[in-house]
Design a protein around this nucleic acid. Structure first.
Lengths: 256, 256
DNA sequence: CACGATTTGTGCACGCCTTCACAAGCGAAT
DNA sequence: ATTCGCTTGTGAAGGCGTGCACAAATCGTG
């Protein structure tokens, strides 16, 4: 594998040579990053794969393989240098520059996201707020003034915005997505419960809160019907409180 | 924790025998459900796998396989009966009963979720709001009064709450999770950026908004470095606007 | 009744991801 | 210098999920 690794200390090289990362790994890197920041705050200078895996809620073997994909920097017998690994991951994820983000749809959720502090602390700056409703335009949230969506193209260009967040009702989402794309945005985080149609080259990630609840409901539903079954009290086969993360559980079935 | 699905209209067979659903399928069923509701509103009575797949943003073969897992109800040569399929999926997901949900942490995000209309319309009722801050207790949101978290055990029992949503800061999340579990909640949707530790049998799903942005940033970062590469203007190899959903794109690398 | 058009349901092969298990490598202690 | 304990990095195996391609089934029509 190509494990390019120019001196990282010298920020001379912007992007060494993007390693080929499995999508599953990319999705976990941010979680590792968060865990690392937490460890750094606690004063830890190094951490073992076991320790970091626990903090991130994953399997340690998986963690090691993930890190190995980006030309890992661990020291056998010791572990990983926390500060170094943070820089490495931030580099790979492209977080060394700040990203300007446009937020469209200042309703309930949009309002909350506009005021959410969790973005700024992780390299994202909400650079502009938009809405189509003239009554909302002009309102100030967290130091930002809500603009009319017609200004989108100009502001996107001015601020160098590449990422957009859609928090409009589903009925408006596609239109907003089209406008974002037309304005030059190439990554969209969609909170509206609908499928967006975008041209090749534009990335869309969807977050649907109701869907998350429905998935939980399924498991809840299943658990409920399991307890009311022949197997009797399955308390016996419960393991000694194994700790789980957001991870998936296996879905076993009751035969007939 | 009783299950109980009241005999919905007609269908003689209540719950044949919980089918063994792959987790990936479970995660997609809610999306199909949303698409189906949309089709029903449009007046469609039947839909082909191709049509439904398009509306849900997935491959038609995948859709058929997913549906086949729950003892499919399609008619060859015709398609699926929309109303019937809706009932079927709702049955499997356990949405025939309404789920009472507790929301803990009435900050920016919690406030927004408390007022979010997308839950009620999909079978979830926010039954109670909690916060630890005495200043927030008593506030009324959307007809609900914020209670102190000490009341959690009583209210959970009274309202039959099985699902909890955590929208507190990360520092408080673990403690809140413990309290939820102690009160009898067995499914948690966690918005706090941290790993929760819960006993076996409790499901946790995590939604981290900053992580979503970081994943987008990675792809954006990659796209940016690609355009600045030898290949020249890749405008030529753009396909005629292939439509994508929240789905994943493959992460191809630049070999050299 | 027979036929053709259409669409479902699924066997199969492929690729990705996960997990195990272990050799290689590093540091500390003797 | 050597040994010993610990931890990383990875080869290999297994499982899961995806997508193709096609047989089976159903409806409408003549």
């Amino acid at each position: 594998m190509s494990q390019q690794r120019p001196g990282s200390s010298g920020p001379a090289v912007p992007v060494p040579a993007l390693p080929d990362l499995p999508e599953a790994t990319v999705a976990r890197l941010p979680e590792y990053l968060r865990a690392l920041h937490s460890l750094a705050e606690a004063g830890d200078e190094t951490v073992s794969s076991e320790g970091l895996a626990a903090a991130a809620g994953v399997n340690s073997a998986k963690l090691r393989k993930d890190l190995s994909h980006l030309g890992s920097y661990g020291t056998r017998g010791v572990g990983y240098d926390v500060a170094r690994l943070i820089k490495q991951i931030e580099q790979v994820l492209g977080l060394t520059r700040g990203w300007a983000v446009a937020l469209v749809g200042i309703g309930n959720l949009g309002h909350a996201l506009a005021g959410y502090g969790g973005f700024a602390s992780r390299g994202f700056r909400i650079a502009a707020l938009f809405d189509a409703d003239p009554n909302r335009v002009g309102e100030e949230i967290n130091g930002l003034v809500v603009r009319h969506i017609d200004e989108l193209p100009r502001v996107v260009a001015e601020e160098g915005i590449a990422i957009g967040i859609i928090t409009t009702p589903a009925s408006a989402a596609q239109s907003v997505a089209d406008q974002l794309v037309a304005a030059g945005v190439t990554s969209i985080l969609n909170f509206a419960p609908c499928v967006l149609s975008v041209p090749e080259g534009v990335d869309v990630r969807k977050v649907d809160l109701a869907i998350e609840l429905q998935i939980l409901a399924f498991h809840e539903h299943r658990k409920a019907s399991l307890t009311a079954l022949p197997g009797g009290s399955s308390a016996a086969n419960r393991r000694p409180a194994r700790r789980r993360t957001g991870g998936t559980g296996s879905v076993k079935a009751v035969s007939s």
